[in-house]
Design a protein around this nucleic acid. Structure first.
Lengths: 215, 215
DNA sequence: ACCCCAAAGTTGACACTGTCAACATTATTT
DNA sequence: AAATAATGTTGACAGTGTCAACTTTGGGGT
């Protein structure tokens, strides 16, 4: 069954080495997650999509989960970039915070596959130091933004970390609930676009829900 | 291999009919999720834990995912009960809201398996009408609580749904981030117990993070 | 008291998966 | 040009979800 003399490369080149299999596998995986969910993603199917044998992925990732972790790290990077871009041309601190929130939500809905992988429990339970670093970077970006607002006198003093935590939680929770469709039948959220939901959540957090104390 | 005359039930009864296999499977599944994660849960292993053949589960659940959905619905019920209990003996509206938040978080960490199943993407993507109802019930409980606070004059008017949404998002996000260990290395959250994190988030949301406007 | 049937459980098979081990080919370094 | 590391391939194995066909059992109508 040996092939004899394929002198010039056929239109369908079947090179032994792939070129950038690692990248191809990540891309294929992302697509599969998008269409079949994280659980539905399969190493073998990714290999097929890359025209490669079912064991080739193991030269690039020690395990299925590690491929996902790699995707998660990548996603964190993209998210952080998106957040940076979202506030790049805005000076007003309040507006910056609102934009940050909206950008978080928009990333979640525009890059659902990445986002789902980033926070899938499978990945979370096998977190790698690199992933932790990437996640911490995102939190620190929030923190830094809040700190700037504090120094500008926009927000309360001495609670930067707490406010950053509350902010991230609110955003993250809203994004999760939206992605999971949990809000689809609620009166508030059903007819609103994700970005409006994000704005709403952020506004609530900024001004608070209590009546202002009357002194 | 016929057993002859087992007059009184032997200690190891090996009846053909199980009695309450459905319940046993749900319990086994919960344990498996707790130890191996949602992805690690296996129908066949649950069947083994219940001393039953690998196909017996199919007499009670059409599919692996449906078993998980059943667990999710069950969990939503427990959560709602826990929330009710948490505020049962508290009259002060502000305190009620704080307790609600803490209860949500505590449920998440005390019943991690249930919680993870409830919001696993596998379940979310195959949501059933019953599950949707159960989730809506939880949201409505939040809403109702906020409405009561509004009528008592505690919180701003005309934004009950928005505030309920913001509250749920913040709580849910905080719970998720805690469960996923995303906060483990952050200065704010690393040394705090989950309930303190929840309190902190709720307090931020109640009073807001902006400086009070000086008129 | 019987028959019969639907519910509940079982066995066996299938295609598919993640992963391991052994082998083949290519690229790189010396 | 030879040795070696990197990259792919084939084959095998145990384990999975699910389908189909069979068996056992408990309860209701006659």
């Amino acid at each position: 069954m040996k092939k004899i003399a394929p002198p010039a490369a056929a239109p369908l080149k079947v090179a032994y080495h792939h070129g950038d299999l690692r990248r191809s596998l990540l891309d294929a995986a992302l697509g599969l997650v998008a269409s079949h969910g994280v659980q539905g993603f399969t190493l073998r199917e990714a290999a097929r999509a890359a025209n490669v044998s079912h064991n080739a992925p193991y030269r690039h990732f020690p395990t299925r989960t590690h491929l996902l972790i790699e995707l998660a790290i990548e996603g964190q990077g993209h998210l952080l970039s998106a957040l940076r871009v979202a506030v790049a041309r805005t000076a007003d601190h309040r507006e910056r915070i609102v934009r940050l929130g909206i950008a978080y939500m928009e990333y979640a809905v525009a890059h659902t596959a990445h986002f789902r992988v980033m926070f899938s429990s499978d990945v979370a339970l096998n977190r790698t130091a690199d992933l932790t670093d990437a996640q911490n970077a995102t939190f620190q970006f929030f923190e830094q933004e809040i700190r700037a607002s504090e120094q500008a006198g926009l927000i309360r003093k001495n609670a930067v970390q707490e406010h950053a935590l509350a902010g991230w939680s609110a955003l993250h929770g809203a994004a999760m609930l939206v992605l999971d469709g949990v809000l689809d039948e609620t009166a508030v959220a059903a007819r609103r676009k994700p970005r409006e939901i994000a704005r709403l959540v952020i506004e609530s957090l900024l001004t608070g829900i209590l009546n202002p104390p009357k002194n």
